[in-house]
Simulated assay, not measured.
Amino acid sequence: MNRELSLPKNISVIAAEELEGCFISLETLNIHEAVHDIRKRLKKLRALARLVRDEMGEENYKEINIYFRDLGREISDFRDLTAHIETLNVLEERYGSYLYVNFFNPIITQLDKERDHMEKELRAKNFFSEYLPEKLKYAQDDLVKWPVNSNEIQVILPGIQRVYKRGQKGLNKSYKDPKTENFHEWRKRVKYLWYQTLLLQETWPQFFETLEAEIHQLADYLGNDHDLMVLKKKLNSEDIKLKDPQHLELMNAIIERYSNILRTEAKTKGELIYVETPEEFTKRIGSYTEINWN
Rank of each mutant, 00 (worst) to 15 (best):
N260R: 09
I38R: 00
E130T: 10
Y175P: 11
V52R: 00
R257T: 09
I156E: 02
T28E: 14
E17T: 09
R39M: 10
Y258D: 08
I107H: 02
V230K: 04
K169Q: 07
K113P: 03
M1A: 03
K113A: 15
I254A: 00
T264S: 13
E59C: 03
Y164V: 04
K267I: 11
R123M: 08
T268V: 12
L218P: 15
E121Y: 07
P8M: 11
F183I: 10
N294R: 08
A34V: 00
L171M: 11
A15K: 09
S12I: 08
K62N: 10
N151E: 12
Y67A: 01
F183H: 05
D244I: 11
L48Y: 00
T87A: 01
E185G: 02
H247P: 14
T268P: 08
Y164H: 07
E209C: 12
G96P: 00
S12W: 06
E265I: 05
E4I: 05
N105F: 08
S150R: 14
K173Q: 11
R187Q: 06
L81R: 08
P147A: 06
Q246P: 01
E4P: 05
P178V: 01
N65F: 15
R53C: 02
A49W: 13
Y67S: 01
E86P: 11
D112V: 06
P133Y: 01
E58W: 10
V230C: 00
L200H: 04
L81D: 05
N2P: 01
G72N: 06
E86W: 07
E114Y: 13
I273C: 13
R50K: 14
L7M: 02
R46F: 00
G57R: 03
Q154V: 15
K241F: 13
V35P: 08
L250F: 06
G167L: 05
P158R: 04
G223E: 05
D225N: 10
H216M: 12
V144I: 15
G270V: 15
L26V: 04
Q154G: 12
N105R: 13
I66E: 07
T282K: 11
R166E: 12
L248D: 01
A47E: 07
K232D: 13
L222F: 01
D239S: 15
E33D: 13
K113S: 15
Y192H: 13
H216S: 14
E93D: 14
R39N: 12
R73I: 10
L248T: 11
K9R: 12
K44A: 01
E74C: 07
D244L: 04
D177W: 05
E59I: 15
E63K: 11
T180L: 00
Q196D: 08
Y95C: 00
R162S: 10
I160D: 02
N292C: 06
M251S: 04
T289W: 15
T289L: 15
Y221F: 07
V155S: 00
E63G: 04
L199N: 05
D112T: 09
K188Q: 08
K135E: 06
V101T: 14
Y61D: 01
D177R: 06
A253D: 04
D227P: 15
E121L: 11
K241A: 11
K113R: 12
H117D: 12
E27L: 10
V148R: 07
K169C: 03
T82H: 09
S97T: 12
T203N: 06
K179V: 08
F103P: 14
Y95T: 01
